[in-house]
């Protein structure tokens, strides 16, 4: 989408985005570089969803792309991804307690808002358990 300042016949520039908690709708503010006039785009939920479904962030990305980022972000229920190193470390745990350890680590990771399970997350769980 593009915004045009009709008075100046000048393309407006994005200056601010109001991003958006889940269930919300996004806003974006554009400014005319010539006269300084501002206009706000207030998207409805459908438009917000369509932009999110493209896996893009208004105004550009703040961080590099992560593997399966869109799918992992947008799925209501998904597994946490483990790094190869963390998975190998889990495999060193005796088999009969491995599912329990996996559950504990993933619960901790989710509580912390981690996007994946790394060795650092495993260390945190271990120190919490006093091991």
């Amino acid at each position: 989408m593009k915004f045009l300042c009709v008075a100046c016949d000048e393309a407006m520039k994005l200056v601010d985005t109001g991003e958006v908690s889940p269930g919300d709708a996004f806003t974006a503010v554009f400014r005319c570089p010539r006269c300084g006039a501002r206009t706000a785009l207030l998207a409805n939920p459908w438009e917000t969803q369509l932009v999110r479904s493209l896996g893009v962030s208004l105004g550009g990305r703040a961080a590099p792309h992560e593997p399966l980022e869109l799918v992992r972000d947008r799925l209501v229920e998904s597994r946490l991804l483990w790094t190869g190193e963390a998975e190998r470390r889990l495999e060193r745990v005796p088999e009969f307690v491995r599912p329990m350890v996996r559950d504990s680590v993933e619960r901790h990771a989710r509580e912390r808002g981690c996007r994946e399970v790394t060795c650092e997350v495993m260390d945190e769980v271990r120190s919490q358990m006093g091991m």
Binding site: K2, L54, G55
Partner: peptide
């Protein structure tokens, strides 16, 4: 109008 005014949707796609 060249570009998309900074929303960068086309660039990300």
């Amino acid at each position: 109008i060249a570009g998309d005014g900074g929303s960068d949707i086309v660039g990300q796609v």
